[in-house]
Design a protein around this nucleic acid. Sequence first.
DNA 1: CGCCGATGTTAATCACCGTTAACAACCTTA
DNA 2: TAAGGTTGTTAACGGTGATTAACATCGGCG
Lengths: 206, 206
Amino acid sequence: MTSRPAGAAAGPAAPAGPPNPRRAEILGAAAELFARRGYHGVSIGDLGRAVGLTGPALYRHFSGKEAVLAEMLLDISERLLAEGVRRAADPDPGRALDALLRWHIAFALDNPALITVHERELDNVPEPQRHRIRRLQRAYVEEWVAVLRRLHPGLRDGRTRAAVHACFGLLNSTPRSAAGLDRDAMGELLQTMARAALDAAGREAG
Amino acid sequence: MTSRPAGAAAGPAAPAGPPNPRRAEILGAAAELFARRGYHGVSIGDLGRAVGLTGPALYRHFSGKEAVLAEMLLDISERLLAEGVRRAADPDPGRALDALLRWHIAFALDNPALITVHERELDNVPEPQRHRIRRLQRAYVEEWVAVLRRLHPGLRDGRTRAAVHACFGLLNSTPRSAAGLDRDAMGELLQTMARAALDAAGREAG
DNA sequence: CGCCGATGTTAATCACCGTTAACAACCTTA
DNA sequence: TAAGGTTGTTAACGGTGATTAACATCGGCG
């Protein structure tokens, strides 16, 4: 009875198999809506309408509203961490930090809605998967902390972690201030400011 | 028929008169809940329960859920702007910037929930008052922009505004990273990082 | 052709939410 | 003490939301 024909998205349970275009479309629209109005401010009807469907049609692709959010956050966290690990591996901590900054900035500039949701909506993910996402998020932070510790030895642990979080706050402000500057100018500005902020954090009161 | 006995909070309409302790209590609890779960994630019942009442009791003090949020945001915006104007008035732009930073950091550290709501929930305020709050928020930003322009002449306008928003992102990250550091250490760290970030923004590519 | 799984739709269910109504207790005060 | 305003409570109303059920369509394929 449970013979899934090897790859087709037969059930709305598992997010495996070949990428279903409908799923991706829904996830994209959901990101925009969740970012703009917040998870609780978006109804299933809104979600369906955003991709030209009625509300209940969504259950053909996801097991529910929470599942949409969970898959979205899981995907973001995995992408951020995977590339973060890669960039943090540079033996020169200064270059590693710049590479991390460029990565995070590019991601935020290209996916402002995703970054916003990633920052705000973790609490609305049901418990089985919330822990997994939180672990990924923490691991991503740890990549930054490790690089920063190599770059500024003698920096206290709590201070390092706080500095990284403050840096994320700076970088993730992009969606709220996209006005005026084009993408490249904005990216360069954020890189400059963030690098200066982190260096200053490492310089004083180590 | 509309003889309000001069000062007593007779109707739930106007937020004037002597400060009603119940109103303040509700506003405080609402700030925590809105910050943690988002405006739409908090029900009237939650709000009442948080101050030891039932849901409908709230209507003795506010005309509705939206009015709670509106009054909260209006109050925050006014407080931020009033003191911001005062501090920006220092003729030395460097001192003015440091004073602005100290003010905003102190506010964020002392009222993490308020800063979060102020940053996220403007869209849920009904239209008569949303414009007023937005004007106050913009005026506050303009104080920062003006000081930064005095400090770093030749800085382009769009870049200045973007830098200020990025700085707010950094400072407002406090509620998401309060762990580890005590209040004073955190304040000093934020001051250091923000000042370095803004100076770097003003230094390059003016 | 005729079955079937995938993908939609509309109608129905059930909970919850914001709000209002109706009623009670209390405090002041004329 | 009686009246009235203040601040609660519980019950009721109308709307909406998430989810499920029942039914339609359609494309591939035996």
